[in-house]
Design a protein around this nucleic acid. Sequence first.
DNA 1: TTGAAAGCGATACCAT
DNA 2: ATGGTATCGCTTTCAA
Lengths: 340, 340
Amino acid sequence: MENKSQPKRPITSYDVARHAGVSQSAVSRCFKPGASISKATRAKVMKAATLLGYQPNAIAQGLITRRSNLVAVVISSLTNLYYPEVLAELTQRLAVHGVKVLLFSLSHESDVDLVLQQVWGYRVDGAIVAARLSPEQIRDFQKRGVPLVLYNRVEERAPCDSVCCDSAGGERQLVGSLLEAGHHHFGIIAGPVDSYVGEERVRSALECLATAGKRDIPVVRGEFDYQTGRAGFKSLVEQTGGKLDAVICANDLMAIGAVDAARHDFERDVPSEVSVVGFDGVGPATWLSYNLTTIRQPVRRMTEAAVTMLMARIADSSNPPERRLFSGQLLPGSSARFTT
Amino acid sequence: MENKSQPKRPITSYDVARHAGVSQSAVSRCFKPGASISKATRAKVMKAATLLGYQPNAIAQGLITRRSNLVAVVISSLTNLYYPEVLAELTQRLAVHGVKVLLFSLSHESDVDLVLQQVWGYRVDGAIVAARLSPEQIRDFQKRGVPLVLYNRVEERAPCDSVCCDSAGGERQLVGSLLEAGHHHFGIIAGPVDSYVGEERVRSALECLATAGKRDIPVVRGEFDYQTGRAGFKSLVEQTGGKLDAVICANDLMAIGAVDAARHDFERDVPSEVSVVGFDGVGPATWLSYNLTTIRQPVRRMTEAAVTMLMARIADSSNPPERRLFSGQLLPGSSARFTT
DNA sequence: TTGAAAGCGATACCAT
DNA sequence: ATGGTATCGCTTTCAA
């Protein structure tokens, strides 16, 4: 018995047509939602199709239709524990619309231009980008007519659709509570300069503190990860000679690093001796060992909004850019001393 | 001034050809690596191309070439903190080969068949799958001639390329050390039944224990996440009436949950009163608050192997299936009492 | 309802 | 080295 099944060449609609004794057009119609086709032919076709294992070539479809049903998702740092959740949500939601995700992750922010080349090449129906884009790059999307939604980024100089979590509002809650609880010696662990939300959060925190008359706050930079959070805490302690009772971190991962540094490297109790707050509300933030005081981004709603906006713009690109800002939710936690 | 830039229709090679005063074939050749074209024409073409912002239509290329330069990456639970790292590695490495990632994440394992439909439709050049596939599904790949590499899965009944981390070997180290250190009362927090590695790890752990004469080990199931790890610990304590000095978890996240449960829910010291071991070596495992005793999967080498194998099979599908097994590295940590 | 034929935007083979 | 032409697998008029 010859088990030489080598159907290298995928089944085409012609194969199905021949097998079903109908025209190729008929086959095509069977796979198009609102096509006019008789019950009889449809039956014949479907039978042949399933028998042969026929699946319409999405590539060919895309070529003729000019709709690839592909959406590019560009994420700079997948390693940031915040993004897996976002990515999972996005792919799932897009799938509902019959849209597939073409994933691009940047090793360096400088790769953006290379990535965009690919994006143009695949004639994606749209893109969701959580990475820094220059105004020119954004305008490139518009010039090419590729719908774009920025995720947790906005670019003043080139208006376009975006969904964000309100950094300023979040920090205001955090810093406000810290002030109210009587903290005096603040320190900030910022994110990398090229992070929009990172800078936004720090800017806002500093603003709140300034309003309360607190200036010259020491700021150190981290890379949004545990290690640099831990190192950042150390730097702050050194810079302040130990006079430090509140540390504001640009994200949860660094906050967690800071908490561990305080407890294990400096044997300072959190929150009685030093308060630490983060931002994002990632999974580990709620783990018992940390129980971080932070702002939880409404990821579900944000991803839903992003997908909705994108699909809307794909359907009709004429409407004006919209910026949607979601408030985060304060997770009180217990890494900061608050007066309730 | 009319700023009505609405080049809805993307630039094609014909546009470039016309603009450069050459044939469309010439344009095509300019974008093909080893094509024979004169310096002069190439220059003209490239000039026109960059001017118009031309980017070859990858969809059309794929249609005629029968190579989409697309690889499907199927991951069941992106929420498992282990996968973001894998995913980032994979996309980056595939990008090196000029291959783009079509990402599919499953909400339910039952979605696999739907996902596979999409995969067939896009005529991907290959697939890397970290999800449970039935033998029929695997054979479907072979029938359709789509190269496939399983990641941390193997299916005895349908041989195919795969890369795995040695679960048995890892558990042997872990359990061996626990036994050697004189632990007596073991408990296991297993993963979901449909996880290959989960079952493999538990099977192996039980085997090691049996060899040491330890039988009737209590086993509870979790979902590979923090919450169920914590709950699992509680269940074990209840089942054993508190006689428990070593907990073997099928992955790190559950181990972390178990550690927190021990410390915070039961006020038992880890590791002096109870040892906890995990598996994976995810980022949080090394955080100071946990410093988990676990097995670190060599993700870099594994993803590299997966990509290499896939590209090799894409280039030549005739070679026999290969199974590559990587040893994990013991991270001693301090969540388990070991004799050194 | 159905089939024939014209593209979609590239590649590849063929003469020139 | 260059241009003409068939082709990839589908959707979409257009007649019948």
